[in-house]
Design a protein around this nucleic acid. Structure first.
Length: 585
RNA sequence: GCCCCGGUAGCUCAGUAGGAUAGAGCGUCCGCCUCCUAAGCGGAAGGUCGCAGGUUCGACUCCUGCCCGGGGCACCA
């Protein structure tokens, strides 16, 4: 619909450019928006005001020229110049009727568009360290990333969803040690568990599975494990303590068996995360292993390249990347004094790999606490000859759970944190998916558990779903009352729908494609949620003021054609959000 | 100290490239079920868009400074 107006305007401007308006105005793409006040019609453009400087004419004068040059259209009922130079368009009822026909004709594809022009975008999100189950913060990343990916896909982008698995580094060694120690406990050993180890119940489960597979083959005595290990906190140093345990473990088991324990822990946790996400409606196209990046030699390659290009230097026994030459605050270590590469090196290699796989846009969804990471990865990409602008980062602020006005405490220590799985079980997947994207990603989220569970109008999930269920219910009533209807007849009789509530609902429906496009362009799923709430409102008001199942055949069919169009749009919108559209509630 | 996010109605938040009289939900107050689901609908009250400058025909929106809240500034990831 908006497109129709855009086309008319462009034609008018083209015909004027080089004549009554300067030639430069030909290329101007008019900005068109919905009016806020119905008195101003349906759409408005400020194009006359924005070109007044170039055209050296007053906005109202330009508006007059454009309006005069506008091709006539049966979809536009009126055009007027208002205020400082707005051009307002009032749509003919036919335009809204055509949109309802279009909804029925395109069905599940209604709202999809090609604004993405087939650009390849990789959306990396969640990417939580595989050291334990996902918690509620990751849930927001999952819901946000998945919804943005869905929106982009609906706009014709080629989307790839990816989870970067940090399966290298010290925290994996700590995980391996934690699993092994629990395994030893199951074999009858007793000792105090390292304060720095992973204490969650899931570690015991993984240890039990390891026991199942390996029996007592990997058993060693606690004396052997703790031999020469510095004391743990509070008396000693917890880091030194766990490192000592890890070192002994590697020595006692040998590298192959050490790897068996570590991989068992990794596989157990990743399996859990994957299942959790899939049940949450979030499916990754690929789980990209950090370790694989090192093993393939890419990390070594980029380090060598940077060194060869003079973009890395030795200092204090480490190898530093000149990140500050590329806009970062300071230079970054690529290779530590101990010879190990850093996560910065892996991250740069990883993002270069994304580019090599052909992605135009690298969209990273990161926690607010990772914003410092952006400058160094971008610096790395630029140093390797890639445009820094290909990296787009969206921050997700923290989510805080509330239960009846009380903040729910979350602590990652001691393993009593609230997991995503617990949240999903408590409020349900639909409520969780929608609540997570209810607010802008830039905004801290207060997640009210009681509200998410409540079955009242306050709860946007139920409010929207209820509109869908109600429409389905009307069709069930239709059959119970033994009345009939015909979509063809209904679409032919749409001109009968002249009530205020009816045109409001039609206008609401016709906005959907614009909302999808805008939501994708701004990576802003909350736009879609707010829209669906408004649309549900338009429906509920209509429902309350008019009976659909009337005796008059053509009117009944027209109304049912309208509400079934609403059903299609609600269903499509909820699908993008990953929320179900129940037929009854 | 530097960097990132936020500050809009009592509360939680929207606000599309700078546009016309700043919106929604909740809460508060007043109404509506012999009728397709009251998980709903109608109405009312409620604002110095953190503060101060600047840019222009026009600023919640852009720029500068300041105040408040959250987060980050590792040879951890």
């Amino acid at each position: 619909m908006k497109q129709t107006i855009a086309t008319l305007l462009s034609r008018a401007i083209e015909s004027l450019a080089g004549g009554e308006l300067p030639a430069e105005t030909a290329g101007i793409v008019p900005h068109i928006e919905r009016t806020r006040d119905p008195q101003h019609g349906d759409f408005a453009t400020n194009v006359a005001m924005s070109m007044s400087r170039v055209a050296r004419k007053s906005p109202r004068e330009i508006a007059g020229l454009i309006v005069a040059a506008l091709p006539s259209s049966e979809l536009v009922a009126g055009v007027e110049i208002a205020g400082p130079g707005f051009i307002n368009f009032r749509l003919a009822p036919l335009a809204r009727q055509e949109e309802i026909r279009s909804i029925h004709a395109t069905g599940n594809a209604y709202g999809r568009n090609e604004s993405g022009e087939g650009q390849q975008v990789i959306v990396e999100f969640v990417s939580a360290n595989p050291t334990g189950p996902l918690h509620v913060g990751h849930g927001r990343h999952a819901a946000y990333g998945a919804t943005v990916a869905n929106l982009l896909e609906a706009c014709g982008y080629k989307v790839h969803r990816e989870y970067y698995v940090n399966d290298a580094g010290r925290q994996m060694d700590i995980l391996a040690a934690s699993v092994w120690l629990r395994y030893l406990e199951l074999g009858g050993e007793s000792f105090s568990f390292p304060s720095n180890g992973y204490r969650g119940g899931y570690v015991r489960e993984i240890a039990a599975a390891l026991r199942e597979r390996e029996s007592s083959r990997l058993h060693r005595s606690s004396e052997q494990v703790l031999e020469g290990v510095p004391a743990d906190a509070p008396d000693g140093d917890r880091e030194a303590h766990i490192d000592g345990v890890i070192a002994n473990m590697r020595g006692l088991l040998g590298e192959a068996d050490y790897r068996i324990v570590l991989d068992g822990g990794l596989a157990g946790i990743l399996g859990d995360i994957r299942e959790d996400l899939e049940q949450f409606g979030v499916t990754m196209d690929r789980w990209f292993s950090e370790r694989g990046l090192t093993e393939s030699g890419l990390v070594a390659d980029i380090i060598e390249k940077l060194r060869d290009d003079g973009l890395a230097y030795e200092k204090d026994g480490a190898l530093w990347f000149r990140a500050s030459d590329f806009g970062d605050d300071k230079d970054r270590v690529l290779v530590r004094e101990n010879g190990q590469t850093t996560y910065v090196a892996s991250d740069i290699a990883y993002h270069l790999d994304k580019r090599r796989r052909g992605f135009d846009t690298l969209l990273d969804v990161l926690g607010a606490d990772h914003h410092g990471y952006v400058a160094r990865v971008r610096a790395g990409l630029e140093a390797l000859g890639e445009p820094g602008s290909c990296l787009e980062v969206r921050m997700v602020q923290f989510a805080v759970l509330y239960r009846g006005g009380e903040k729910v405490q979350m602590s990652t220590r001691s393993g009593d944190f609230v997991t995503l799985r617990e949240l999903r079980e408590e409020v349900g997947d639909d409520a969780a998916r929608l609540f997570y994207v209810l607010r802008s990603n830039d905004q801290h989220l207060d997640f009210d558990l009681e509200l998410a569970k409540s079955r009242t109008a306050d709860n946007p999930v139920y409010y929207i779903q209820y509109a869908h269920a109600r429409i389905c219910s009307v069709f069930r009533q239709l059959h119970e009352k033994d009345m009939g209807w015909s979509l063809t007849a209904g679409l032919a009789a749409l001109h009968l729908l002249a009530e205020e509530h009816e045109s409001a609902l039609m206008t609401g429906l016709s906005r959907y494609p614009e909302v999808v496009e805008l939501g994708a362009a701004n990576r802003a799923p909350q736009t879609l949620v707010h829209y669906l709430r408004d649309l549900a409102y338009d429906f509920h008001t209509y429902y309350n003021s008019h009976t659909f199942l009337v005796e008059q055949d053509d009117l009944r069919s027209a109304r049912l054609a309208l509400i079934s169009a609403a059903r299609i749009v609600i269903r499509n919108g909820l699908a993008l959000l990953g929320v179900s559209a129940p037929e009854s509630m």
